[in-house]
Computed example of a mutant assay.
Amino acid sequence: MYDRGSGSSNPSEQTVELLAAAGRAVETLVAERIGVRGSSPLHQSVLKALADLGPHAHLDLATQTEAPLDDVVRVIDELMEQGLVHAMVVNIGGRHEVVTLTEAGTEALAATVDDVKSLQDALLASITKGERAQLHYLLRRVYTTATRADGLRSVSP
């Protein structure tokens, strides 16, 4: 947990620690919000991938969600039991089982998006609309830099 009284006195190091702590805290809050609906982040990732990209095979969904295939297959089975996705067999260059989003799945995803938006609104209630836009812009820049592994490896401490 982040404790503003501990750690380095270097503002750059404090910022990195604070970003990491904030990320963990928000991730926990999001997981709790979607958990109320009997869902997990992977369930939501699969639904979102299907909503954004259309029907996909199991292996493709594992690639899109960056999750192990066994976990994705388990989640797809659970989503099928809930009526949120449907699987069908297609024969294009071989036999493939393709998963599609159902109307109930679209509605469940929309409800989760609403839940996460209300969490975002609560977390950012103390900052202005302009500050929210600036925060979003800055976090995107930090994220982009953080995902450039080659650039970070060459930076000396």
Results as ranks from 00 to 15, higher is better:
137 Y>I: 05
153 R>C: 04
93 G>F: 03
66 E>K: 12
69 L>Q: 09
55 P>H: 02
126 S>F: 00
7 G>Y: 04
75 V>R: 06
58 H>P: 02
117 K>P: 01
101 L>W: 07
147 T>S: 11
13 E>M: 08
39 S>E: 13
86 H>F: 10
103 E>F: 03
58 H>L: 10
37 R>T: 05
145 T>C: 03
101 L>Y: 05
6 S>L: 12
117 K>H: 15
23 G>A: 02
42 L>S: 04
109 L>C: 02
3 D>T: 08
157 P>H: 09
142 V>A: 14
79 L>R: 06
65 T>W: 05
18 L>P: 00
18 L>D: 01
69 L>E: 13
133 A>T: 09
128 T>K: 01
65 T>V: 07
88 M>H: 14
108 A>E: 10
145 T>I: 08
101 L>V: 09
50 L>N: 02
26 V>P: 01
92 I>V: 10
69 L>T: 11
149 A>G: 00
3 D>G: 07
52 D>G: 03
9 S>C: 03
94 G>L: 11
94 G>A: 07
70 D>C: 01
25 A>M: 06
121 D>Q: 09
140 R>P: 00
32 E>F: 03
143 Y>S: 08
70 D>V: 12
106 T>L: 04
74 R>L: 14
4 R>S: 12
155 V>P: 00
62 A>G: 15
91 N>Y: 09
145 T>S: 09
32 E>R: 14
39 S>P: 04
96 H>F: 15
95 R>P: 04
125 A>Q: 07
88 M>F: 12
24 R>Y: 09
64 Q>H: 14
105 G>K: 01
44 Q>R: 10
129 K>T: 15
10 N>L: 08
135 L>I: 05
26 V>E: 06
148 R>Y: 07
95 R>V: 15
127 I>A: 06
85 V>W: 02
97 E>V: 15
37 R>P: 04
108 A>Y: 01
74 R>H: 13
101 L>S: 04
23 G>S: 06
93 G>E: 08
126 S>P: 01
123 L>M: 15
131 E>H: 05
23 G>T: 06
61 L>S: 07
137 Y>E: 15
67 A>L: 02
91 N>G: 00
85 V>H: 07
17 E>D: 14
144 T>A: 14
55 P>I: 00
140 R>A: 11
36 V>P: 02
44 Q>C: 07
110 A>G: 13
97 E>W: 01
124 L>M: 06
21 A>W: 02
34 I>V: 15
18 L>G: 00
50 L>K: 01
31 A>Q: 13
24 R>Q: 11
127 I>N: 08
1 M>N: 03
57 A>M: 02
100 T>R: 12
117 K>T: 15
144 T>C: 03
21 A>V: 01
145 T>W: 09
115 D>M: 03
26 V>Q: 05
73 V>K: 12
